[in-house]
Design a protein around this nucleic acid. Structure first.
Length: 263
DNA sequence: CTGGGGAAGGGGCCC
DNA sequence: AGGGCCCCTTCCCCA
């Protein structure tokens, strides 16, 4: 499973940016007023840095590029590898190249037909017409520049993250502005339910009980992790020594301690 | 060192 | 579109 947390973690107690300099919109939630807290305020539009014009519409859709996932063509050659389509021997000849190039790849590449064209630039990006001497050069260009620009157009002003939708960006922005503030200790959170979970640390409320023992937890995920301790079968297994662990973090610790490095 | 609990962050989905 | 919730993950701390 790909790691879903793409935001760089902060290492120490100075983990977080200086949010006090960011946005002063805050929401105070009384622990006694869970149900009636005010709606957190989304930052002013001017802090949202995005260019809606470049989303999709900037791409003139030709019959050859009508797929709204322009990355899919080369993604099959980079990440999730899909088996090459049944070969169509009528037209495919990649001059001895052993890298599988799908039909979509084929479409994305326009070989310059002009016999007088510079020999070194025979692979052209169908999106911006830039030419490259090698197929890999074209792939690199598309991955790092062209497709990245067309697919993700909502970028965060506070960090490098980009999103395909404004809603996702707004959600992310809250991780910088932290509009939900605990009235008891002043700690700030990005979302109301995170604050609610935090407030349980003050109230001692533990609504999630283990059915196998007397323990209770304030957080459902922590109960889930706890349930693993009751299980005979550990979920996470080291590929090298087959040792199993109840948590992925423990497996990671194990791997970092040298088991996998030794192999 | 290892395992487990506590707290928290963040993306995705559903309503 | 936005809020609430679910789920996964990570980090820290302690026994």
């Amino acid at each position: 499973m790909p790691r879903s947390f793409l935001v760089k973690k902060h290492i120490n107690s100075a983990k977080k940016p200086n949010y006090s300099e960011l946005d002063t919109h805050t929401v105070f939630i009384s622990p006694y007023l869970y149900k009636s807290y005010p709606v957190p305020v989304i930052p002013q539009p001017e802090i949202l840095s995005y260019n809606p014009i470049t989303v999709w519409s900037s791409l003139p859709l030709s019959p050859l590029t009508s797929d709204l996932s322009p990355i899919s063509g080369y993604a099959s050659s980079i990440g999730r590898v899909s088996p090459p389509p049944p070969s169509d021997t009528s037209s495919k000849d990649h001059s001895g190249s052993e890298s599988p190039i799908s039909d979509e790849d084929e479409r994305m590449i326009t070989k310059l037909s002009d016999p007088h064209a510079v020999e070194a630039e025979k692979f052209q990006c169908s999106l911006c017409s830039k030419s490259y001497s090698t197929y890999s050069g074209l792939l690199k260009h598309k991955q790092l520049h062209c497709d990245a620009q067309t697919r993700k157009s909502f970028s965060c002003k506070y960090c490098e993250k980009e999103y395909v939708s404004l809603g996702a960006l707004k959600m992310h922005i809250r991780t910088h502005t932290l509009p939900c503030v605990c009235k008891i200790c002043g700690k700030a959170f990005s979302r109301p339910w995170l604050l609610q979970g935090h407030i349980r640390t003050h109230t001692g409320e533990k609504p999630f009980s283990c059915p196998h023992c007397s323990r209770a937890f304030a957080d459902r995920s922590n109960l889930r992790a706890h349930l693993q301790t009751h299980s005979d079968v550990k979920k996470y297994q080291c590929k090298n020594c087959s040792k199993t662990f109840s948590r992925m973090s423990l497996l990671h610790k194990h791997e970092e301690s040298g088991c996998c490095v030794a192999h």
